[in-house]
Write a protein that binds this DNA or RNA. Structure first.
Lengths: 127, 127
DNA sequence: TCAATATTTCAAATATTGTTGTACTATCAA
DNA sequence: TTGATAGTACAACAATATTTGAAATATTGA
């Protein structure tokens, strides 16, 4: 991931409203929600919601699909994974022992994450 | 975590400069870096760096410790873990099967995350 | 076609952030 | 104490983001 993409994603989450929207859609899973449902659930004026949905969708955090007059939004969870990878990659670069002191158990050691310092690769191949 | 804390954290990461700073400090691990080193590594004027460091530190993403004239900054990785938990909690609430379709292998199923839909509890106890 | 509904686009007002230079505090070294 | 270094606080300006209402677009159903 590039810095500009990651920045855009973080910007898209850097708002109380958009955070509420995204978390609501995470909860809904593959069902997603149409814009009107989101608006009434979170008690937002449609113009304002549309503004925030656009921001999230342009960052890639939401996908949209049209259903007649409705627009259905869904959270893009795989992108969250990519984002964390970007944020934490090269953690304690080249020093697995240090990394162990610092990492939250979620990271570095996690199978889904890319080859960081804790992978069983040969040492010394930091990017 | 509360919405306002999470928003503050995402705001703190919603800048190309701050993202570079944080990732650099992730790489350094427990060693961290002093402000001047960060400034020269990223080629930033000290006033500007100070502005961004403050934002990251106030959000809790960095810790600071004084060393004589120097200020040493370190990435606070456990907070990243808390943040992801907040962002993805109640994923596909109450519908583990759906969740499996959607989640990146990093989430939901992860031991470090809170009891979501994928925990081995009885089905149908959505929060 | 026409009226109603769902949602977005646009424009204007307001609010918030980012950048820069200057000044300040604290520490170091003599 | 003095002068140098490390870093931050403040103030001014520039740049962006957020909110709102009115208007536009697209779909539905009579």
């Amino acid at each position: 991931m590039e810095n500009s993409s990651a920045t855009k994603i973080f910007e898209s989450l850097a708002s109380g409203v958009r955070l509420d929207v995204f978390r609501l859609l995470v909860k809904q899973g593959p069902d997603g929600m149409v814009a009107g449902e989101i608006a009434s659930t979170l008690d937002l004026p449609p113009t304002n919601l549309s503004f925030h949905l656009k921001s999230l969708a342009q960052a890639g955090m939401l996908t949209v699909s049209q259903e007649g007059r409705f627009q259905r939004y869904r959270a893009n969870l795989p992108l969250v994974s990519d984002l964390i990878t970007y944020l934490t990659e090269e953690c304690c670069a080249g020093h697995p022992a240090q990394c162990a002191d610092v990492r939250p158990s979620t990271f570095c050691t996690n199978a889904a994450l890319p080859p960081l310092s804790s992978t069983p690769t040969k040492p010394g191949d930091s990017g």
